Computed example of a mutant assay.
Amino acid sequence: MPGKPKKSMLDVGYLRTATTTGLASSIIASKAHEEEQRLIHEKQPQQIDIDLLFDNPFQPRVAMEEESLQQLSDTIASHGFQGVLVARAHPQRPGTYQLTAGHRRREAAKRAGLKTLPVIVHNWTDQDMATLAATENIQREDLSPLEEGKLFQIMIDQMNLTQLEVAAAIKKDRGYVRNRLRLAKAPSDIQAFIEMKTDSMRAVIYLLDIEDQSERAQVIDQLLNKKLTTEDLPGYIEELKRRKREGLQSNQDTDITQSTNTTYAETASVSVNETNLSSKSPSNLRRVGVPSEEEQQDYSKGSSMSQARLRKTKLKTIMRYLADYQRLLDDANVEEDVFEDERELLIQVRNTVQQLADTLN
């Protein structure tokens, strides 16, 4: 009589890691974990076609490292697939399944030429799937900022955690969590940029301030080409906004001027028609549509005021940069003669710019 079939072993190392991390365990632990471990020891897996196994819909990971994936595939090809996977029946696609975890092992097995994999199937809820996905990923150190943001969003949406609780679970501050949540909701071009430059998270908040996608694309291109740095962004974006405001004001001024010229032309035409054309007085023979000398002076005055505002805006921008430069010197804390000379020159420059600005008040 054949003996009882040998129970397959499931690699639960990631569960042990996640459930022995103090506060993280107390927040993330749930009945889903206990149930999964019970199933591992009590339920036999079934062989399921590898093409019928889909990702956990709450899995935050969006990419796999090529080299390590190939290494795992080579190991599986040489030694076979170790352990089993856990899944639920796909709620929208009958006859298929959603893995709770093990997506990387499934991909490696597929590369190794395997057609089926051992799977334990259970009736997991969405809450269970989200919890198990979070458990698998929460202690990983190789998640990208975008993947972390998606994981944090899952923990908030599906596990009803607050940002503070998420931060406590991963032992990071709230700002860390908030910035990655912001990235998870950002437009795709910003997400793609951060995936390419994961050390540029501080740029996200500034890029989100640029609503025009074409303008944002230009800024991202300059960041990637190192023509701009994250530190440059506040001033650069402020300059973009200033130019846009001035462009709008310029268009409005043009419309007003054209409208005013039309009004003057109509008024002058009426004036000529009502004047005794037989009069030889030059004062009664103003050309139609041509403003008077006094009116032309008014235009000139308005134009000068507009130019003055423009110059004043530019001077304010210069003053802001000089103030930033002053802070750099103050933070340097170096008592060298060259720094003292630099400070004196900076004071002279700031005084000169301030004098220029005062003349425009």
Rank of each mutant, 00 (worst) to 15 (best):
Met1Cys: 02
Pro2Phe: 07
Met9Glu: 10
Met9Leu: 14
Arg16Gln: 15
Ile27His: 04
Gln37Arg: 15
Gln37His: 08
Glu42Lys: 10
Glu42Thr: 15
Phe54Val: 02
Asp55Thr: 00
Asn56Cys: 08
Phe58Val: 02
Met64Asp: 08
Met64Gln: 13
Glu65Ala: 12
Glu66His: 11
Glu67Arg: 15
Leu69Tyr: 00
Gln70Met: 14
Leu72Ile: 07
Thr75Ser: 14
His79Thr: 09
Tyr97Ile: 03
His103Gln: 15
Arg105Trp: 08
Gly113His: 09
Lys115Pro: 04
Lys115Ala: 15
Val121Ile: 15
Trp124Leu: 00
Asn137Ser: 06
Asp142Ala: 10
Leu146Glu: 01
Gln153Cys: 00
Val166Gln: 01
Ala167Glu: 04
Lys171Arg: 14
Leu181Ser: 01
Arg182Ile: 11
Ala184Asp: 01
Lys185Trp: 00
Lys185His: 10
Pro187His: 03
Ser188Pro: 00
Ser188Gln: 15
Asp189Lys: 02
Ala192Pro: 01
Arg202Ile: 08
Ile205Leu: 12
Asp212Ile: 07
Glu215Arg: 13
Val219Glu: 01
Val219Met: 03
Val219Thr: 08
Gln222Ser: 15
Leu223Val: 09
Leu233Glu: 00
Pro234Cys: 04
Tyr236Lys: 09
Lys241Glu: 13
Lys244Cys: 01
Gly247Trp: 03
Ser250Gln: 07
Ile256Leu: 14
Thr260Trp: 12
Val270Phe: 03
Ser271Glu: 14
Ser271His: 09
Pro282Trp: 06
Asn284Glu: 12
Leu285Phe: 12
Arg286Thr: 11
Arg286Ile: 07
Val288Phe: 09
Gly289Leu: 05
Asp298Asn: 05
Tyr299Asn: 06
Lys301Ile: 02
Ser303Val: 13
Ser304Val: 14
Met305Phe: 10
Met305Asn: 12
Gln307Leu: 15
Gln307Cys: 04
Arg309Thr: 07
Thr313His: 08
Thr313Gly: 14
Lys314Thr: 02
Leu315Trp: 02
Arg320Cys: 10
Arg320His: 11
Asp324Ser: 06
Leu328Met: 12
Asp330Met: 06
Val334His: 03
Phe339Tyr: 13
Glu340Asn: 08
Asp341Leu: 15
Val353Asp: 05
Gln354Trp: 10
Gln355Phe: 10
